[in-house]
Amino acid sequence: MSELRGATDIGDFLVSARSFDEYRAMFALTDADLHGRVLDCPGGGASFTAAARARGTAAFAVDPVYASPPRELVARLDAELARGSAWATANAERYVWDHYGDPAGHARLRAESAAVFARDLAACPGRHVAAALPHLPFTDGAFDLVLSSHLLFTYADRLDAGFHVAALREMARVGAEVRVYPVVDQAGRALPDLLASVLAELGGAGVEAEVQDVPYEFQRGARSMLRLRSAPTRTGVRGAGAPGSGGRMRP
C-alpha cells in the first residue's frame, strides 16, 4: 500500500467495506429493486451481498481482489479500513457526517461491515467472483441490476474515458439496469467533460443513461448516480466454466 499522497488523492485503489444501508441510500434502492438478481461490481469488502442474500436477493459480488486467498484478503481489508479511516479523518471537511455521526462512527460501521463480509466469504466463496472490469465472466442479461460504487468517476485521474465507456457497456451487457455512484472524483469535483463524453458514447451504443439524484451525501457534492438501461438480451448460458477459465457463467 502506498502512503496518502496528497490533498486530492487517496493513493492506490481503496478496498472499502460499505454497508447494506449505505448501498440502499447511495443507489436509492427500493425493496422491489432487491427482488431479482443483483451484482455488486466491484464488491470489495462490502457486506451488501451477504445482507441482501439474507433478505432473499440473489446477490453476487465481483472484484479482482477475490483472487487472493481469503485469509490474505481479510488481512488486506483490515489495513485498507485503517487507510480509508485515516483519509476521511484527515479530510473531514470534505464529508457530510450526518449518516455516521463522526469519523469514529464511520470507522465503526465500516469495521462491522467488513466483519460480515469476512464471514460470508468464508462460508459462501461462490458468491464472490474474481474478475475485473471491463471484462466480466457472465452471460448477457445475467442480472436484473448491477451496482457499481466508487470506481468509475472516483478514479478519473487514472481511468480514462475509454475505460469508463468499456466498463459501463460491459455492465450494461450483463445487467438490465446499471447504477453507478458517485459521478464526482475523489476530491468531490464534477466531471462535466468526462460525463458528457461517456453519455454520448453510451447513447450511440443504444444504452439509455441519465443522472439521478439520490438521498445520500457523504462525500460533499456526491448527491447523484448514473443510471443505465438497455434492451434485454438474455441468451442463456453461452459456455461453462469458472471465472478465469475463458467461459461465461450464469449465477
Rank of each mutant, 00 (worst) to 15 (best):
residue 1 M to H: 02
residue 5 R to E: 15
residue 7 A to M: 12
residue 14 L to R: 07
residue 17 A to P: 08
residue 22 E to K: 02
residue 23 Y to M: 11
residue 28 A to W: 04
residue 29 L to H: 02
residue 31 D to G: 11
residue 32 A to C: 10
residue 35 H to D: 13
residue 38 V to S: 07
residue 39 L to V: 14
residue 40 D to E: 14
residue 41 C to W: 02
residue 48 F to T: 05
residue 50 A to Q: 01
residue 52 A to Q: 05
residue 54 A to C: 07
residue 55 R to V: 06
residue 63 D to H: 06
residue 65 V to T: 10
residue 65 V to Q: 04
residue 70 P to H: 04
residue 72 E to P: 00
residue 73 L to T: 03
residue 81 L to N: 14
residue 84 G to T: 10
residue 92 A to Q: 15
residue 92 A to M: 11
residue 93 E to W: 03
residue 103 P to V: 10
residue 104 A to N: 08
residue 106 H to K: 14
residue 107 A to H: 07
residue 110 R to K: 15
residue 112 E to R: 11
residue 114 A to Y: 07
residue 120 D to V: 00
residue 123 A to H: 01
residue 135 H to A: 15
residue 139 T to S: 13
residue 141 G to T: 10
residue 150 H to T: 08
residue 154 T to D: 08
residue 160 D to L: 01
residue 160 D to H: 02
residue 161 A to L: 12
residue 162 G to K: 02
residue 168 L to R: 04
residue 171 M to E: 05
residue 171 M to I: 08
residue 172 A to R: 01
residue 178 V to T: 06
residue 178 V to G: 04
residue 178 V to F: 03
residue 180 V to K: 02
residue 184 V to H: 01
residue 185 D to H: 06
residue 186 Q to E: 13
residue 188 G to N: 09
residue 189 R to Q: 14
residue 189 R to T: 12
residue 192 P to W: 10
residue 193 D to A: 15
residue 197 S to L: 11
residue 197 S to R: 15
residue 201 E to S: 13
residue 203 G to I: 09
residue 208 E to K: 11
residue 209 A to P: 03
residue 210 E to I: 05
residue 212 Q to F: 07
residue 213 D to C: 00
residue 228 L to K: 00
residue 229 R to V: 13
residue 232 P to I: 11
residue 234 R to Q: 08
residue 235 T to R: 15
residue 237 V to Y: 07
residue 242 A to T: 15
residue 243 P to E: 03
residue 244 G to Q: 08
residue 247 G to L: 08
residue 249 M to R: 11
residue 250 R to C: 00
